[in-house]
């Protein structure tokens, strides 16, 4: 939690009261590999900040296949924002790919901070902006880059991730088949 507070304080001036409030609405939790934090189809009211480990969010299509939306490693936020902001049941599942430490926030209470402590708003906006940038980059990369280039970028972004992900997690994140991913990897070892 202290690290997160430090990050916030790097951006904004945080009052002691606001800091205490953040402490009061967060819980430090450790989850085992395979633990499911949010389950598609069920209620969602939690947002997670990752302090260690790796989580994955994915949706399951009507045929039962998984499609990876996001991997979250240290210092990333993860939740099902569609469900939270539209007040719907979860359209995503969030699971731990290895033992992970997170700060768990109640989504409503983290929203409440903006009313109680308006000085927090620029930090919230910064998070949102960063989120939009990353989403736009992901969409543009999907539209204009080759699978091999997308895989390179992926490895840059998540350097050690292949140790604890399965091939199909990465293939479904990149929008390619597992066979294509294997082929790309073989080509890279040749070069």
């Amino acid at each position: 939690m202290k690290e997160l507070i430090k990050k916030i304080k790097n951006r904004i001036q945080l009052s002691l009261e606001a800091e205490e409030y953040l402490f009061s609405i967060s819980k430090e939790k450790t989850f085992a590999k395979g633990a499911v934090l949010i389950r598609q189809g069920q209620d969602v009211n939690k947002i997670y900040f990752v302090t260690d480990g790796c989580l994955r969010s994915y949706c399951i299509d009507k045929n039962g296949k998984e499609h990876t939306l996001q991997f979250a490693i240290k210092n990333w936020w993860i939740s099902d924002y569609i469900a939270i902001h539209n007040n719907e049941s979860a359209s995503l599942t969030v699971e731990c790919l290895k033992e992970s430490k997170v700060l768990e926030f109640n989504a409503k209470k983290i929203d409440g901070i903006l009313t109680l402590f308006p000085e927090y708003e620029p930090f919230q906006r910064h998070l949102l902006e960063r989120h939009v940038v990353s989403l736009h980059k992901r969409i543009l990369n999907q539209l204009q880059l080759t699978a091999s280039e997308r895989y390179d970028l992926f490895l840059e972004q998540y350097p050690d991730i292949e140790q604890y992900t399965r091939n199909y997690h990465i293939a479904s994140y990149l929008g390619i088949t597992q066979e294509s991913l294997s082929r790309i990897r073989v080509e890279k070892t040749k070069n």
């Binding site: 994915y58 399951i60 045929n63 039962g64 296949k65 998984e66 199909y168 293939a171 479904s172 597992q178």
Partner: peptide, 9 residues
Amino acid sequence: KKPGNISFE
């Protein structure tokens, strides 16, 4: 649990 990369069928 079923494999995540294949369909129900």
